[in-house]
Design a protein around this nucleic acid. Structure first.
Lengths: 184, 184, 184, 184
DNA sequence: CGTTAATCGAGACGGTACGTCTCGTCTTCAT
DNA sequence: ATGAAGACGAGACGTACCGTCTCGATTAACG
């Protein structure tokens, strides 16, 4: 039995919502996270600034919303008879995605999270915790030599560490090496 | 043959330099990295804004200067007959330091580095690369089951990952667990 | 042969109209003309914004509607054997009304008229011209020492000048003084 | 003996001050008072917005500053053997100035004053009181048939009334008629 | 021992993004 | 069709910082 909230007034525009999310990603990929402003996103989306602030608290939350949806939907692990290969492919896909397009976006999100503790919680709960759960499930099907939770920290830790510090690339070789080290 | 640079004019004030560095750290610990501005640091230090901009390029470089000096000087690994214990103590000391006072400061530095690629390089070369070299040397004396460079990425990766995402504490238990996993 | 206009749909709510007009005046007296917005009037009247915009072009026209009706209906000159006394009483009543309750409302109307030339015409034709005609008729029955139209400009000019600039009160003394000066 | 306030820091830029005042007048004459924004004035003057808000509280005060200076300096009464002619010329000059260029500017100032009581005081004390004093001095040298202060209210009242309501022009004929009525 | 030059604290400057507010229009469901 | 509700595109508001500049006042080394 639906009790129904009886929504009054003009309903939220789904078109505006989508336009804002994709305008945000496009703007960041074009100009970099730092150079993008809420005003620019609004212009690109053909939307008033207030329509953004009505539903999100700022640039960071808009971007998080876009990224979380995108990554969760597109990077899903396979489930074959060879768990080690599944893991390797999952890592390689994750690294490749970051390398190809997500670098600046993710960097911006982490930057914002470091400055605003509230957003840090949001980022963790709406995005990172989910990714951690996915990786944990993949790892659980393999026989790692380290405790499961620590293995997750090792793998995603190494990934983020390389992304944020930029001291070494995120490539297929790293994926292979990680799998060999954990399962070898 | 002229050797000296013949410094003319009023010499740089060492008192001002020190006041700025400690004002920066104090301000961040009090109000958080995001809330601190160059203007605030200048006021706290009793210094003109230009005196900061004359010697550093902005808030981030001031903080990096303060932190690099501080961390490098104080957290040095021991060198006993038991390399595993040396590693454990080094990690525990690093984690404890971050937990106690450095969290917000380090978070701020990483945030800045994500937004500004130039500063990312600076942070790597003047701070993170050094810490990585220290950890590498400590690890090199142990018999890790994973390649040395990957081990460094695993250990510091896990550390940064936990700091930045805040999903689990940086405590002595983590240090112990890491040592056991790598050497066990 | 269809004759009637065949009113389809829900008819205009007279209750809403009245609620809007009095809410507008009340809101201005409470918060001042500048602080009042169409949205506030709508809320106070328990009415949707669109219901206001459907019948008026904005705040100013709502207020003008309310005021014109009000002032025209209530301040009417007497017609006794003593035209000078009639004039004095008419002025005193006008001044008293403004002093008592109309100050902020009239000020707001004039303000709007200065910014919007279209509304300036409306204000003149739907309100001020009428009041001018009334004063002119009263003056016409007296023997002023100045041409009739100029006398109107002098009298209402002094009134508006004092209201808008606030350099002296609009009181009975002014009414007496004006009559003495024009007829004495 | 000057005690001297010992001004510290960079002194206020006289060039910026002048640029702002003339940009404000120019912008209003070009686009009308209502269409001009603080941001536009700043752009036209080649100045940051904050430089305006540092010294004035908003558009209205900037314009008042510009107008008060201008009018006070340029419209000064003559002092010949014929006080009636002096009065007529002073009025004609005032009317002509308003007609030619000041209409929209003065209208905007009065509008603002009606909405903001604080600015109303400012307008009176920094501009209108001065003009009233000037007119009073000119009238004092003539033999008016009405009390001096009331005469001032009549004359400037008629002027403002015609400007604000726009029911009749402010021209030389009005000046002549006023003089005849008051002195005739 | 005065001149020269770079520093200092102070704070105004030209810019730019922020997040809020109001405008007048549009879009829903209920009368 | 009208009404209440409220989201929408638009754009100005006044504030906060940025990094630069311009003051008078110090503070050395040079001449």
């Amino acid at each position: 039995m639906e009790v129904s909230a009886a929504p009054r007034g003009r309903p939220r525009s789904e078109a505006a919502r989508r336009a804002i999310l994709s305008a945000a990603l496009a703007a960041i990929r074009a100009d970099g996270y730092g150079a993008v402003t809420v005003e620019r996103i609004a212009q690109r989306a053909g939307v008033g600034k207030q329509t953004i602030y009505r539903w999100w608290r700022g640039k960071a939350e808009v971007v998080l919303d876009a990224v979380a949806q995108d990554a969760t939907a597109t990077i899903v692990p396979e489930h074959t008879d060879d768990p080690a290969a599944d893991l390797r492919r999952f890592l390689a896909a994750s690294f490749r995605r970051i390398h190809e397009e997500g670098g600046d976006v993710l960097r911006g999100l982490v930057a914002e999270a470091q400055i605003d503790a509230g957003f840090r919680t949001l980022l963790r709960e709406h995005f990172l915790a989910g990714r951690r759960a996915v990786l944990r499930a993949v790892l659980a099907r393999t026989a790692t030599r380290v405790p499961l939770d620590l293995a997750v920290d090792f793998v995603f830790g190494a990934m983020w560490y390389r992304l944020l510090d930029d001291h070494a690339p995120l490539d297929d070789e790293l994926a292979t090496e990680i799998v060999r080290a954990l399962l070898g």
